[in-house]
Amino acid sequence: MNTAATAAPDLGAAMNASIDQAPILHAVDVTKSFTQDGTPTQALKGVSLSVAPGEFVSIVGRSGSGKSTFLSVLSTLLRPDSGQLTYNGFDLTTASEADIDGLRHRDFAVIFQFHYLLPYLTALENTLLPFMRGLKPVSRAQKERARECLERVGLADKGHRLPGQLSGGEQQRVAIARALVKDAQILFADEPTGSLDSATGSTVMELLSQIHKDGLSVVMVTHNEQYASLSDRVVRMADGLVV
């Protein structure tokens, strides 16, 4: 895999290491700034990145480098101030909120440093959460799919437990099962091992590698070089720029 990320603002540069296939996700010259305590802070100063289908990209950098902000923009949790973001050729910067919601529901999956499970739902119900958006009851097939996902993350026998009855690693694995359940196209992981001990972190990383090998595109933010080395490509960021 070629490195397609660059700090250069032009689209050509972003695509210069053009991958064999058309990128599934493509960000060009993305900027994002915030105002903190009345002081404007530019978190992203024009970042570009292309992710090919089935590619595992790690974004590494020190705290405050803008890597998490960039992941949030890529996963549509944040809208960029400027630049362009496309998913399978569809412009996400101008997409309606309903389209974005649909995308998050269908194609994108996000896991965070903290598992963020709903504490009053069981592991199985948390896994089924993406299917509980409306009044339509969860189908038997969806339940079966959720059980398969829990089995895949090694929690087949713990589906009935509440998050409080699971360890940190198990909770993160439930979050991964929840990400897998809807057959997403791309998984965004923001420091997925950040709150775990090294042994549990390794288990989670093995799981992510397996998922990637099954064909899922993965974009992971980490500051652990060892985990980053498991990916196809490492993008380094510093001070809001890809370096």
């Binding site: 309903a98 998050r104 529901h105 959460l129 958006r133």
Partner: peptide, 8 residues
């Protein structure tokens, strides 16, 4: 979390 899962 719900919004990230596509809840409108």
């Amino acid at each position: 979390i719900l919004r990230s899962l596509g809840f409108s």
